[in-house]
């Protein structure tokens, strides 16, 4: 069945690496829902979080293709349950008169923070998983969203290790390993 997969990709921070990753997924007809990139805990390495939609087998193929990029060190498919995901959203909401206090109350429920205030709007930041953000936005829509920006998902596995091994020792199904 087709569903969204969260791929975490550890890459060497070389010029053009984002272009290479995106270009590869495009030419192999994979749809990217979101992509985020930033430095990782290791100098010279970045971590990307990609949300890709597709059948399990297709996404596995995407992972194998990504490994072929010289800069890609490690690809991990964080399927549901094993990982914590977070997204950040900033919204500018129409907030006049009494709706202002209502908005502040709702924001509190979502642990959201007010970043800026004008006579007619409030700028609010919320963090959470996709469902929490969606639900927060549903509430805000009632008052009228003037502007909104979402960061795209970042994710981290719940296991104790870091995802930083090289390709050679990253067997997902025993096929890659030159063990024995």
């Amino acid at each position: 069945m087709e569903h969204a997969h969260t791929l975490v990709v550890l890459v060497e921070d070389q010029p053009g690496v984002l272009n290479r990753v995106v270009s590869l997924l495009r030419r192999r007809s994979f749809n990217i829902d979101s992509i985020t990139v930033g430095h990782s805990e290791q100098p010279g390495m970045s971590r990307m979080t990609l949300v890709v939609r597709g059948e399990d087998a297709d996404v596995e193929q995407a992972g194998k293709q990504l490994y072929k990029l010289l800069e890609v060190m490690k690809v991990t498919d964080l399927s549901e349950g094993e990982a914590i995901t977070r997204e950040i959203v900033m919204v500018k909401v129409a907030a006049k008169g009494q709706s202002r206090s209502e908005i502040l109350q709702i924001a509190q429920v979502y642990n959201a923070r007010v970043l800026d205030v004008t006579p007619s709007t409030l700028m609010i930041e919320a963090t959470g998983d996709e469902a929490q953000i969606d639900s927060f936005l549903t509430m805000m829509r009632v008052f009228g969203i003037r502007e909104m920006v979402r960061s795209g998902k970042i994710a981290m596995s719940r296991t104790s290790g870091t995802s930083r091994q090289g390709k050679a020792d990253a067997p997902s199904n025993g096929v890659y390993a030159a063990a024995d």
Binding site: D13, G16, P43, S46
Partner: peptide
């Protein structure tokens, strides 16, 4: 992001 990163040459 790559533009302002330190590339490992």
């Amino acid at each position: 992001m790559a533009a302002n990163s330190i590339a490992v040459s």
